[in-house]
């Protein structure tokens, strides 16, 4: 409690065991609420398979073409581009999982029902992240399978180095998702466009398909403060030089922690603004 306000993480339970059980059940409930829809909702199938497939086909064939054209350079563009594409999808869909989960409850005017229950905003976010991880696992596996089948490229050949890279990308996607959700809370459905577009705002700067040295210097200054830049550098380093750039992963992770903490603080601050100004109830009736 500070100045009579509720802060997201400040409620300490008397009985940790009962509270912990209720905590897990609430999050499980949220995951279940979305999992119910996966088998029968066509839009979810599009989300899981169709859009990733379209991405993969478009860029896959582009890189095959590039590979043929510049074979003399000795760079395997298929490995470079398709690996980068799948990794980018991890980031983009991590952000979407958080935001769209929230938007679904806004669209169905269910948001007030959630926040008059004992569900806390922190639990709501954790539920969205948990659902996102399940969704990501399915999507990455599917993309990797199609890439292997169509382009003879094994995404998982990057081995254990892939784990810190994917974790870093997830973390950044979640940070973007949390910020976007906070902005939708504040500005209502008018801010919905951020759910679909915010990740693409950083895409040119983080060197998904090319080293950031390709960019003009002012753009590079933006690149160095974005965590995914280091992840894509590391992935390129593994593919091209067969070297694991531990320092890149470390910088990326350190920056990611800062971004994630900042995103949580931003959400917490806007959550209280929203409750002060009554925007939450307005959003619930929009």
């Amino acid at each position: 409690m500070k100045n009579g306000r509720y802060y997201v993480f400040n409620e300490l339970p008397d009985n940790l065991l009962l509270w912990g059980r209720a905590f897990v059940l609430r999050i499980y409930g949220l995951v279940l609420r979305h999992m119910f829809l996966v088998p029968r909702n066509f839009a979810r199938w599009l989300d899981l398979f169709y859009w990733p497939l379209i991405d993969l086909l478009l860029w896959g064939y582009t890189t095959v073409y590039l590979n043929k054209s510049v074979a003399a350079g000795g760079i395997n563009f298929v490995v470079l581009f398709i690996g980068a594409l799948i990794s980018w999808d991890v980031l983009f869909r991590a952000q979407q999982a958080v935001t769209v989960t929230f938007l679904e409850d806004v669209w169905s005017r269910n948001i007030l029902n959630l926040f008059v229950s004992p569900l806390t905003p922190a639990e709501f976010l954790l539920g969205a992240l948990a659902y996102g991880v399940i969704k990501q696992f399915i999507t990455i596996s599917f993309m990797a399978l199609v890439a292997f089948w169509l382009y003879d490229y094994n995404y998982f050949s990057l081995g254990f180095y892939l784990i810190p890279a994917i974790f870093n990308l997830l973390l950044f996607g979640w940070s973007l998702g949390i910020v976007t959700t906070a902005l939708i809370l504040r500005f209502g459905q008018a801010a919905e466009v951020l759910a679909w577009g915010l990740a693409f705002l950083v895409q040119p700067f983080v060197g998904v398909f090319y080293p950031i040295e390709t960019l003009p210097k002012p753009f590079m200054a933006v690149s160095v403060i974005l965590p995914p830049t280091y992840v894509f550098n590391e992935l390129r380093s593994i593919v091209l030089k067969k070297e694991f750039a531990a320092d890149q992963i470390f910088y990326g992770f350190a920056l990611n922690i800062l971004y994630f903490v900042a995103a949580i603080l931003f959400f917490n601050w806007l959550w209280n603004v929203v409750k002060d100004k009554g925007y939450l109830t307005r959003l619930g009736n929009e």
Binding site: L30, R33, L37, S108, R109, N113
Partner: peptide, 19 residues
Amino acid sequence: VGLPSNLKVRENLKFFSYL
């Protein structure tokens, strides 16, 4: 205030029972 329209009645109630 609404309820998730794409969930069945039973699923809606199960979801809220967890909350």
